[in-house]
Write a protein that binds this DNA or RNA. Structure first.
Lengths: 206, 206
DNA sequence: GACAAATTAGGACGGTCATCCTACATCTGT
DNA sequence: ACAGATGTAGGATGACCGTCCTAATTTGTC
């Protein structure tokens, strides 16, 4: 009870280390060292390493859900919100160049390990996929909303992978500019009345 | 000398296993089992695991160089050749859905391990990058050839990552269709008119 | 067929890993 | 003050890892 903190510290450190070093390559000792607790003490909080992974995924899900929720508040139009997603590449450019995308690289690793938590990790992708799809629907692109959502998602993944490999910030900026233009074009061709309605609704809250 | 075969068998098995299971997760025992040789016998052919990795990367480099060389022969126009690159996603769609892109996933893993062979593995990306850039130059896009090359490369990486996560063949087809249209458009706007007629020839499955 | 070189087999080694156990400390409510 | 619950420490365990050694076997050459 009192130690929600210790448990949270473990999850937090594991989250960071799984991102920086990968899941398999991160050992209990690594995490214990980061949290400054005894190695054996782990067993009290988590029975297995997979349990830590599960907790980390759930934390990431919660974090991203909160982020998307915030964008729903801040972004006045669906285009704004999709743009917020695209901008993750810029906001996190330094980390992406060092470690890639936290969601994509985890998903890739778990696929190779044929790990049972693959499905759970994919919920992270699904979360963004359906959220983006909803935004495109609001833009009046209901018919191909999912296709567009997957396209944006794939674009981010590709950019993150290559930015990581080449450690290239200029490339990130270039690609963000390009996909933003694409988004603006999409928006221009759309019957976007629905999006505007959302705008006025959300605008009151500020 | 006489046993180019055994050594090659090891490299071949390691290549496959590194792709399917990842580098770190693949042990000497795994490879030995696949090649059906004694575990200890490895030391005769490779002093360390990193040496095997190096050999695997060199093999992949040689394989891809040969593939690109063949495309130079088969593809009558730069557009044909770029299209050949795009079509890898279709040709290897089954493996990509299971294991992702062999180049991208290796690069991603080595980055997380902070492994010394990162640079060498990146030569695989660089090989495609400069080859694609050369094709775009031939199309008359000399000024932004590298930007276009990186765009195509990133696209493939993104599609491979998501196709792997969602095990989604339809998504691959959708994205290949879209990027092919983009390529056709690029070719159409170019000073060289080599692009168009060949495209209809190669326009493939339904 | 003899002999040296090339190749293979099998196991030993030190280390690290995830997991688990038990003794010790600290807190909580009475 | 005390007893049970909660949390911590540190090490034991067995498995697997990459690496390395050495004895056996195969191969090429005369």
């Amino acid at each position: 009870m009192k130690d929600q903190t210790t448990r949270d510290h473990i999850i937090e450190a594991a989250d960071r280390l799984f991102y920086q070093q990968g899941f398999e390559h991160t050992s209990f000792s690594h995490i214990a060292g980061a949290v400054q607790i005894s190695r054996g003490n782990f067993y009290y909080h988590f029975k297995t390493k997979d349990e830590i992974l599960e907790a980390v995924i759930n934390k990431r899900l919660a974090d991203r859900r909160m982020m998307l929720g915030q964008w729903e508040i801040d972004g006045d139009t669906p285009v704004d919100r999709i743009q917020s997603f695209i901008n993750i590449l810029l906001v996190n450019k330094d980390k992406i160049q060092l470690y890639g995308c936290p969601i994509g690289t985890l998903s890739t690793e778990l696929a190779k390990l044929n790990h049972g938590a693959q499905e759970q990790a994919n919920q992270l992708f699904t979360l963004f996929r359906s959220w983006l799809g909803r935004q495109f629907s609001l833009l009046g692109r209901d018919r191909d909303a999912d296709v567009l959502a997957m396209h944006v998602l794939a674009h981010s993944q590709g950019v993150a992978t290559l930015a990581n490999a080449f450690n290239d910030e200029a490339f990130i900026r270039q690609e963000v500019r390009q996909i933003s233009d694409w988004l603006a074009e999409i928006a221009g061709h759309c019957p976007k009345e629905q999006g505007q309605q959302q705008l006025s609704k959300k605008e009151q809250e500020k």
